Simulated assay, not measured.
Amino acid sequence: MSHTAHIRSHRKPRRSASTIAMRTGVAGGVLSTLAVAGASGAAHAAEPVTQTLELPTLTADLAAQVAQSADVTQQAAASYQLQAERDAAAAKAAKQAKTDLAEAKKKAAEAKKKAEEAARKEAAERASRAAERTTLSASSDTGSSTGTSTSTATGSAAAVVSFVQAQVGKAYVSGATGPSAYDCSGLVQAAFKQVGISLPRVSQAQSTAGTQVGLDNLQPGDILYWGGAGSAYHVGVYVGGGMFVGAQNSSTGVVEKPLSYDPPSGAVRVL
């Protein structure tokens, strides 16, 4: 036996024709598939792809929820607007209140200032009246000691004095000018009318109708006034001897009194 009889051949065994043919067919099928796929891919690459999205259809429950949400949103917006309007109104009211308070304080300060000025003026007038009373007292004493009386009046002054003394005891009536009743300026006007002198009707005007004279230099027939010249609230007639006649008030009527009974503020002379 040959020494190589048991050595296997190194040559590959031949494949059968059917196996080769099958493999060739598979390969060809794969290549065909790749070719078709490549062509299809090329075709798809050349044409744009359009996709259609379908929106979901709202159901009745979902629509109701959307409507309810819209209502809630609207109500919230209305609430915010109402609150904003209230805040704006409150701010406006606060601003107006601040303005009103400032104005009230200003008016109060002005009123206080006026009251203080009036008080000072009144105090000055009281001091002036006190000084005048002292002067009048001295003047009355001097007049009495020197015998000054109605008998010293002559002419028109005597006629005026005689008239007013004749009215003593008659009633005081506001606005009356005689003959049965008088007010203060009505009596003075009527007295001077007897001697042909026309005086203004009211006390304020009568207190500036003649020449201002000092209370220490009075003569019978002079017009006495109480208050300021031009703003007098009462008038009478000096009759001499430290006495005057005037329609005082509804309680006393027309009286003759000493100057110390109600010291006047000043006097004017028209005769």
Rank of each mutant, 00 (worst) to 15 (best):
A115R: 00
Q167S: 07
A157H: 04
A166G: 10
L82Y: 13
A78H: 05
V66W: 01
A111E: 08
K106G: 10
T135F: 03
A63F: 04
Q51F: 07
P56G: 13
E122Y: 06
A88Y: 09
L62T: 05
T152L: 09
S69A: 13
T50H: 12
K98Q: 15
E122V: 01
A157C: 07
E132K: 15
G155V: 07
K98V: 15
A93K: 09
A102T: 11
V49L: 13
A60Y: 04
Q81H: 12
S174C: 08
T152A: 08
G155M: 12
A77E: 12
K95Y: 08
Q65N: 04
T154S: 15
Q74P: 00
Q75Y: 02
T148F: 06
A104C: 07
L136P: 05
T57R: 14
T73G: 10
R86W: 14
E54Q: 14
S128Y: 14
E54I: 14
A109S: 08
Q75I: 00
A67D: 04
A130R: 07
A91L: 07
K114F: 04
R129K: 12
V164C: 02
Q68P: 00
D141G: 09
S79V: 13
A138V: 02
A60E: 14
A171P: 03
V66D: 02
Q167P: 00
A97L: 15
L136E: 09
A130P: 00
V161M: 02
T148V: 13
A131Q: 12
A157N: 10
A127H: 06
F163N: 00
T150L: 03
Y172E: 02
T135K: 14
S174D: 10
A118R: 01
T59V: 04
E110G: 03
V161P: 01
A124K: 10
A67N: 02
E54W: 08
A77G: 10
L55R: 11
T135N: 09
A130L: 12
Q83D: 13
A166V: 00
T148K: 09
A118H: 00
A123I: 02
K98R: 15
P48K: 04
Q165S: 11
T99C: 01
S140R: 02
A91Q: 07
D87A: 10
T150A: 13
K170D: 06
K107A: 13
A77L: 12
K107F: 03
A159S: 15
E117D: 11
V160C: 08
T99F: 06
T59P: 00
S128T: 15
E116R: 03
A130T: 08
T50W: 04
Q51T: 10
P56I: 08
S140C: 03
E85C: 00
T152D: 13
E117V: 01
Q51H: 04
Q167D: 07
L58K: 02
A93D: 12
V173F: 02
A60Q: 11
Q75G: 05
T150Y: 05
A63C: 01
A108T: 06
A138C: 05
E110C: 01
A158T: 04
E47F: 10
S140T: 13
G147V: 08
Y172R: 01
T57E: 15
A94Q: 09
L53V: 12
V160H: 05
D141L: 11
A76T: 11
Q165T: 09
